[in-house]
Amino acid sequence: MTLRRKVEENFFYGLSFLFTAIIVFALVQIIWTIAQKGVPSLSWQMISQEPKGGFYFGKEGGLLNAIAGSFYLAVCSTILAFVISLPVALFMNIYLIRYQRFLIGVRFFLDVLWGVPSIVYGAFGFTLLMYLGYKNSLGAGIVTVAAMITPIMIRAMDEVLKTIPIGLQEASYALGSTKTETAYKIFFREALPGFATAILLAFGRGIGDAASVLFTAGYTDYVPHSFGEPTATLPLAIFFQLSSPIEEVQNRAYAAAVILTLIVLVISISARLLKTRKK
């Protein structure tokens, strides 16, 4: 009996350790594979030039269109999402704080929204575009991605604002400030470091997502100059070039994967650093 218990204990200890190690191994394996395939094809030309003639047959050119497009798209949609999320998150924590039931309902709703896959946003965005008679464009992509990351951003900001003690709010009222002043001068400032993490998270989600921009942002070989033009994005650049039978084009896809992974790595590490420094 005792032996059996001991064996069982050790077995599950070992197994749980092994499974944790497998997860770490999976991450290392993914990054190693991508790096090994992509780094040899990385070059300055790759990140500084737009595709030239015959690019898709393995000739000259780079991925600047996709890199710039992805940045435009992610930055603008993060800003747009922030402009919508900030009032909502503040409203939830200042006005709704007295209506706990309703507040819980709103949080629940946003959590559910978080689960909606990006392809659904993409399909809806596309339908809306058709309905309004617009074409695929940077602007449409920005709106779609912003709609997708807004629930994530609101909930992340909400988690930060939740930790601010209610006494601070009361002190602010006692000094005669209005709710708006309390929201933007006290709460906003207090939560700013936490907001940075929320913004980075949303930005990372926005730059890496392919399914939502597939329908809405289109694809082009040029860096867009206005919101009305279509734009290339890194995830789609990888996706399209990988389906080419020509090896040089495929290698470019791997290089693009390295660039995208690097961007995301930097974002998630800096988000983590911000979080730990705050504590």
Binding site: L27, Q29, I34, A210, F239, I267, S268
Partner: peptide, 21 residues
């Protein structure tokens, strides 16, 4: 493990697709 999980969560799905291929 926290950053490991963070990074896994942050890797875009198209990169997972490349790895899968």
């Amino acid at each position: 493990m926290r950053p490991v999980i963070d990074i896994l969560a942050g890797i875009p799905s198209v990169v997972y697709g490349v790895w899968g291929l």
